[in-house]
Amino acid sequence: MYSQGFASPLSARPATGAAVDPFQPIGVRMAFEPGDEIFAQDEASDLVYRVVRGAVRTSRLLSDGRRQIGDFYYEGDIFGLEPGPLHRFTAEALIDSDILVVKRATLKRYGDEGLALERLIWAATARELVRTQEHLLLLGRKTACEKVASFLLDLADRGRGELTVLPMGRQDMADYLGLTIETVSRMLTQLQAEGLVEFFGNRRFHIRRQAGLARLVAC
């Protein structure tokens, strides 16, 4: 659990329509420990998932053995959305996580609640497309320093306090950003040396100069 006073990205995106959450009466709640597989690459994509608590990583194993991180999902996020019948990525819990699971084919049985959930899923699909486009831009057009700075800013934007927790490790960051773990570590050290961010151990950080980091990302 996160220490009191630390901002956690896991609570940064409240569920849409949190007062009446259509996932709650329909979904089945499942618990996962760190490293547990939620669904596998090339597995049938007939289920939709929502993070209640914790953090989830999606990744794809390439034919040459390399791994590509698809995205990270936090409290309130919907994931597992696919345009086809199979999952293109594997999903795993980064930390202890509770996930609501819904079988999409059965939504019509639930009347208004099913329709509300369908609308929520469509909204999540649109957000997923936007984030995919942003990820492509990040991978193709930004320097290593800009990539790491963008990642930290995005994570901090999800937080609610002074300190933000990184639920993922350096290798996950590297695979998501298309960098080596050595480059990620070097860029983090550089950003801290320049007084833009301050780290407390490996998993907690504070942005000291928000405007400066934002200018770096915008370059």
Rank of each mutant, 00 (worst) to 15 (best):
V51T: 11
E43N: 02
E162I: 03
A12H: 11
G159T: 12
A218W: 00
L138N: 03
L213S: 07
Y73F: 15
Q41V: 08
A211C: 01
V20M: 10
T90E: 13
A116E: 06
L188A: 08
F23H: 06
Q41S: 08
F6L: 13
R50F: 07
C219W: 02
V165I: 15
V48L: 14
I181T: 15
G195A: 08
R88I: 02
S11R: 13
A55L: 09
A123Y: 01
D96E: 06
F32A: 12
F199A: 06
R160W: 06
V130T: 14
T180C: 02
M173A: 12
H206Y: 03
D175M: 09
S59W: 04
I69L: 06
M168P: 00
V130D: 04
L216G: 06
Y110K: 06
A40W: 09
E118F: 07
L196R: 12
P83S: 09
T132C: 01
Q41A: 11
S11H: 13
V217H: 09
D77H: 15
R215M: 06
G159K: 02
R158D: 03
T183A: 15
R127F: 03
L179N: 04
M168I: 03
F23N: 04
V101Y: 07
R215A: 13
R127M: 05
L136S: 05
L10F: 04
A156E: 05
S3K: 15
L100R: 10
E113L: 11
E37L: 13
L137A: 14
G140S: 12
Q190G: 02
F32E: 01
V165M: 11
M1A: 14
L177Q: 05
A174P: 06
P167W: 07
A214M: 11
Q210V: 07
L177P: 01
G70A: 10
R203S: 14
L153Y: 07
A55R: 05
S45P: 00
M173H: 04
K142A: 03
F151Q: 03
A55I: 08
V197E: 02
A31Y: 09
A126K: 11
R141Q: 09
R60A: 15
H206A: 13
A193K: 12
R141F: 11
A123E: 05
R131K: 12
Y74Q: 01
Q24T: 15
F32P: 00
D36G: 04
R13N: 09
R66L: 08
A149K: 09
L10K: 12
V197L: 05
G161H: 11
E43D: 07
R170P: 00
M187K: 15
W122D: 04
H206R: 15
A55S: 11
Y176I: 03
G65M: 10
T58D: 05
D42N: 12
G140T: 14
R109F: 09
D175H: 12
E37G: 07
L100D: 10
E118V: 15
M1S: 12
V217R: 15
V102Y: 05
H135S: 02
C219T: 07
F79C: 13
R119T: 11
L115K: 09
A156R: 08
M168R: 02
E113Q: 12
R104G: 00
